[in-house]
């Protein structure tokens, strides 16, 4: 069982559309994980049935029991996150500001503060239209996307893949370079970078690749909308060569990307032309590169 993670650094490069296409091509043999939990979109293309749903708790938040509070103000004094203002003569913890460090509870002279684990979202196991299964999640608003929910989604996907004897897990990774991406990358066998030839696309590709390098994982790259800017495409090509990243394919600027999404299909289902051909070849290459790795 091999884990393939698709990431992009920058949003809007087509990462999810590419991942969903790979999931579709991978069929029954491929378990899918949507680790982009902050803006999970892949379910819009793969028609999951949400057959199992569970709440997810992570981190803690302080709660002050007003009956036991003697209003000494020690908690607010030690809180480095200004999370305990006085509202109508009561000290009240603001959950969106509380980091869950627990310091306030430790200094409270009357033990009026408890730490409660925080519901940060839900995660799901679904049957999807590829004949396989998908693990996905929804982060609660304003929750700390610490990477723990991402790790949970990945671990569940791994368990499923093991039980089903699947060849691959394909993971839609998180954007950025922070904790959630770190969690998506950990333990991966191969990384697919989806980028676009814009100054921002290249900039973010370089930044996120620095992170991939830290993990020592082999990577390949797909340049989406390569014909938007031939100069930057060339520059990306040079960067890939220099870093020894496999250049998997170039996808042209094509309205079918959006059209497929609008009718809730993956590109390889909707498009019968060049996009389908290139993506099918890309998936074979990705599998090959992952296995040879």
């Amino acid at each position: 069982m091999k884990e393939i993670v698709v990431i992009s650094g920058k949003g809007g490069t087509g990462k999810t559309s590419v991942t969903a296409s790979f999931a579709y091509l991978g069929g029954e043999e491929t378990v899918v994980a949507d680790c982009d939990v902050d803006a999970a979109d892949m379910h819009l293309l793969l028609q999951p049935d949400f057959s199992k749903a569970e709440d997810f708790y992570s981190g803690e938040v302080a709660i002050i029991n007003q009956d036991e509070c003697i209003k000494c103000g020690k908690c607010a004094e030690v809180c480095r996150f200004d999370a305990i203002p006085i509202i109508d003569t009561q000290y009240i913890v603001q959950p969106l500001d509380c980091e869950g460090c627990g310091y306030c509870a430790r200094v409270c002279p009357t033990n009026a503060i408890t730490n409660e684990s925080q519901n940060v979202g839900q995660w799901y196991i679904s049957n999807i239209k590829t004949g396989s299964v998908m693990v996905h999640a929804k982060l609660a608003i304003g929750a700390d996307n610490s990477g723990k929910l991402v790790a949970k989604v990945k671990n569940e996907a791994k368990l499923l893949a093991k039980n089903r004897n699947s060849d691959f897990i394909i993971i839609d990774g998180s954007p950025g370079v922070g904790c959630p991406v770190v969690s998506s990358l950990s333990g991966a066998n191969f990384v697919v970078l989806v980028t676009e030839p814009s100054v921002s696309g290249l900039h973010d590709l370089k930044r996120v690749y620095k992170l991939v390098k830290k993990f020592n994982i082999k990577a390949g790259c797909i340049i989406n909308k390569f014909d938007i800017n031939e100069n930057v495409t060339k520059e990306i090509g040079e960067f890939l060569k220099k870093e020894n990243i496999a250049h998997i394919s170039n996808l042209p600027y094509d309205d079918n990307f959006t059209k497929a999404m609008t009718v809730g299909q993956t590109i390889v289902e909707f498009d019968k032309g060049q996009l389908q051909t290139i993506l099918t070849e890309s998936w074979s290459k990705v599998k090959q590169l992952t296995i040879n790795n």
Partner: peptide, 14 residues
């Protein structure tokens, strides 16, 4: 602001 709906966005928009 950063994308998404988690902590960094809250901090950036509050």
């Amino acid at each position: 602001a950063p994308p998404g709906t988690s902590c960094p966005v809250i901090e950036a928009t509050k």
